[in-house]
Design a binder for these strands. Structure first.
Lengths: 180, 180
DNA sequence: TTAAACTTTCAGAAATTTCTGAAAATTATA
DNA sequence: TATAATTTTCAGAAATTTCTGAAAGTTTAA
C-alpha cells in the first residue's frame, strides 16, 4: 500500500510536530496515516507507507495505544490487527490533553503535595511560598480540567465559543434572577 | 554559590519534566533554581549550582528568554547579568501555555489553512473532511485561548473555579432576566 | 499437537540532541 | 583608545533517543 501523494504534507508535518505533542517523529507520522485513512490499517501497511521497519511500527502502535489514540479492529477471515482512531477528531484532541496532563502535571503535583505534607518549619519561607503557589495553581487547573473533560462535546463547544464572554456572565451573576 | 539542599528535589524534578514541558533537562533545572531563589542569579552562579558548563548556561538562558520566562536584572556597580522570573507563578504558567500554543498549534493551523485555500476538487472527500475538522477545532481553541489570555488573573481564577459549573449557567441562560 | 501467521522484543547501529570549553565577540570602564 | 570583564558561539565529544531486523513469543486453525 502506497502513501497517497495528497497525504504526504500532513505526514511530514505530523512527524515534525510529533515530539512537540509528546511522542516522536515516527509515532506522529503513524498517527497521521491512521487518522487520514478511512479504512483501518495493519502494521505492514503502515511500515510500507512510511518506509520504516516492522519493529518500529510495533513500538509506535504500542505508544499510540498507551495514549489511547488508536484501537484495534479485526476483519472476518483475517488474522492481522487493523488500527483506526479511537474516536472523532474532537475526542482525540481531548485525549491528547488528558494524557499530557497525566504526564506533565500529575508527577509535579505529587511532589508538591508530599512537600506540603512535611511542612518543615526549618524550610525557607520564600521556597515554601513558591511551592504553595505552584501547588495551588496546578490543583486548580487539575480540578478544572477534570470538570471540563466530563462535559459533552456540544456543551464544550458552546463554552469555548463563549470564551471570556463567560466573564461577562459572571460579572452580572449577582444581578440576575430566574424567570418563572 | 551552592545549591540549597532543600531545592535539590525540585531541581531534579524540573529537570526530568523539562522535556515534557517543551525544553530540555538542563533548561528545566535552570528554571527551577531561578524560580526558587529569591535573589536574581548570574550565569556563573547557575553554572556552579547545577555543575554545568558556562556555555551551556548561556544557551539555556537564551532558551528561557525566548520563552519569555526570565528577564535580565542589573545591579549597580556590577556588570554581570542577573536573571529573575519574568512574572508571578501564575504569569509564568500562562506564558508557558501561550508559547506552547505558538509552537504546537500555530504551525499546524498554517498548514491546514493553506490546504483549505487550494480546495482541490480532485482531493479525496474523507481527507478534506478530516482537514476541515482539525482546522475548525484548532481555530476554535485558538480564539478561545486568545480570549482567555487577555483576562485578569482574578477573573480567570473565578472562571477556573466555576469549571463546568459554567455549563449550568449556560443551560439557564434563556431562563434569566436582569434585576432592576 | 504442529505449523503457519502474526506480533513483540531487544541488542546493537544510526540518528539526534545536548554539553563542554576554548576562541571570538561584545560591552563597559579607565 | 586600550584593556579588562563578561557573554556568546560553535566544533567536536558525550549522552540520549530512535530505528532496524533477526530471534523469540503468541495465537489460531487444522
Amino acid at each position: 500500500m502506497k502513501l497517497p501523494a495528497e497525504l504526504e504534507s500532513f505526514v511530514v508535518h505530523f512527524g515534525e510536530m510529533g515530539s512537540r505533542w509528546g511522542f516522536n517523529r515516527t509515532v506522529g507520522q503513524m498517527l497521521a496515516v491512521i487518522v487520514f485513512t478511512e479504512e483501518p490499517l495493519n502494521a505492514d501497511q503502515i511500515a510500507q507507507m512510511l518506509s520504516i521497519s516492522r519493529g518500529n511500527v510495533s513500538m509506535g502502535l504500542k505508544e499510540l495505544q498507551s495514549w489511547q489514540l488508536i484501537r484495534v479492529h479485526h476483519r472476518p477471515g483475517d488474522r492481522k490487527d487493523y488500527f483506526k482512531p479511537s474516536g472523532s477528531i474532537w475526542e482525540l484532541a481531548l485525549q491528547v490533553l488528558a494524557e499530557r496532563r497525566k504526564r506533565e502535571v500529575e508527577p509535579t503535583l505529587s511532589l508538591l503535595r508530599s512537600q506540603l505534607m512535611n511542612d518543615d518549619p526549618e524550610s525557607d519561607l520564600f521556597v515554601s511560598q513558591k511551592i504553595k503557589e505552584i501547588h495551588d495553581l496546578l490543583e486548580l487547573f487539575n480540578t478544572w480540567f477534570d470538570d471540563i473533560h466530563r462535559m459533552s462535546p456540544d456543551n464544550l463547544i458552546t463554552l469555548l465559543k463563549l470564551g471570556s464572554g463567560v466573564g461577562r456572565v459572571l460579572d452580572i451573576k449577582d444581578k440576575i434572577s430566574f424567570k418563572k
